[in-house]
Design a protein around this nucleic acid. Sequence first.
DNA 1: GTGACTATCATTAGGTT
DNA 2: CAACCTAATGATAGTCA
Lengths: 208, 208
Amino acid sequence: MAMQVAAPSRRRPSLGRQKIEIRRIESEEARQVCFSKRRAGFFKKASELSILCSADVAAVVFSPAGKAYSFGHPSVECLLERFLPDSSSGAAARVRRGANNNGGGGMVGELNRQYGELRAMVEAHKARRERADEKIEMERAAGRWLPMDADVRRMSPEELMAFGTGLMAGQAAVSARADQMLRDALLIGRRPPTTTTAGFGFFHMPHY
Amino acid sequence: MAMQVAAPSRRRPSLGRQKIEIRRIESEEARQVCFSKRRAGFFKKASELSILCSADVAAVVFSPAGKAYSFGHPSVECLLERFLPDSSSGAAARVRRGANNNGGGGMVGELNRQYGELRAMVEAHKARRERADEKIEMERAAGRWLPMDADVRRMSPEELMAFGTGLMAGQAAVSARADQMLRDALLIGRRPPTTTTAGFGFFHMPHY
DNA sequence: GTGACTATCATTAGGTT
DNA sequence: CAACCTAATGATAGTCA
């Protein structure tokens, strides 16, 4: 492998950072490198957020390979205890029951209420949309849509679109990742991660 | 190389970003503002990390006021279950229950999360993109969007619920579509609807 | 509390070593 | 493969509407 003699006076050592689109990085190598860099940056952000704003933050990341990393202030477990009970105890069950019974009361009503805020925001956007004309084309790529629940009958088209998109997005994510999750789960099983402290919260790093 | 900035005839509207130390922000107001901004940035990073590297990411943030926000790809519960040490009691048990409840058919519960996602997304976008192409949104909203195989818009809440549940069970085609669309919307920067999943994955916003 | 701005600081994509 | 480098992109502190 012949190496070129660097010509420092003429050639730039680097093009510097290039803009990239937020989509899966195809190159296995580049993806790995990016993961390492961004994971570090991500945890740093978590740390700064917790310190600057006195907020409690927990973050867990699973690498494509199945290794688990995490950050938690005060600790991941602690925050999960606070976060989970609320959504798993009575809420979900109650919601579900209500849906089966009348499909429009209780939680759904609340959902709709909250939707009012969102709607307001969307409205605000429309109000500000003065300069914009182009590519209605992309739309086609969107494919088919599917608005559901939350009393869609009362939503404006815009809201329906937004909601449907969001819904699909979530489901898409779940479906698309189901297989990998399964694989990961089987692959990693559950091994106790090593724990280290990084500045503020706790970092759990995987050991190989 | 000290260079004095020549006194500009016109005063700068802002000094721009200033460097700050990573320590609790004393000013109540400044802390709140910072929290909002950084929380958004934090979730965005989480989203990008999960997309770029195909990594599974979950993050939970509690504001000083006690409100909880979260991001999870595929979902917070799902990842937590993978992360938490096996323990048939306490947290793990609850986590599992919650996951089952939500995944088993709690569409509304899921919708509630989607709502949060949508809101987060809108919030994130208002900050910088809408001025470009709201036109598309309008056009689309005009009523030219293609419905799914079933006309969910005419379904009763019960029917929607059932349909939604079925969808969650497995809609490969839809998932693919959504995924593609999401990618386009998110990465390209010019998405049709006012919706972006800030990645994709679920956002849990605080319940009021 | 949120949106808009802008100058700056921070992060990181691509290469190199 | 990780540590360095450089330069361009991205995030955001400070301020005002």
